[in-house]
Amino acid sequence: MNCPQSETPASLYRFLAQSFRYPEQAWLTEPYFDLLGNIKQNLALNSDATGLHWNYNAESDGLELLQIEYTRLFINAAPAVIAPPYSSIYLDHEGNLYGQSAVWVKQFYQLHGFDVEGEGDIPDHLVLELEFLALLIEEQQGDKAEQFLNEHFRRWFPLFRERVLSGSTNQFYSTLLTLVDFFTREEP
């Protein structure tokens, strides 16, 4: 059976999920950047993937700039937030939160024995979906992970990625988006 997701380590999805949480000194540490560098090295990125600033220094202004960029891209911004990281924004015609696709996601979680922690949590946040993939892999349900990717994630993630890339030149997030794409896209 062809289910490449079963071979992607859960820890990788967990790492990517963490990468899309709000940037804070607590986790943007030396070991984090070492790991990111390690992944990049293993991927043998070709030459046009230059300019990745792995030597990013969390103690300089860099952290604040990253926080500002995260706020602008994913939370609130003037003139406008670039890309809210929820599937409903991209898949449902009204572009609101908690649309039909979010309901589908929540039901998918529940069918596989999980639920979001908070009663008011919006289920289709990018971070939650990546965490959920990690949970499925850990549970040896790689085929379900593939189903989740196929029926849901791959329908919205490219649209989201496109919105971020067209609205930002930030290397950190463009790299991470490339990594998420690499570990979630369909392969023969």
Binding site: A17, A26, V116, L128
Partner: peptide, 8 residues
């Protein structure tokens, strides 16, 4: 280093 998964 990472946050909780957000799932139960």
């Amino acid at each position: 280093a990472q946050a909780r998964s957000g799932f139960v």
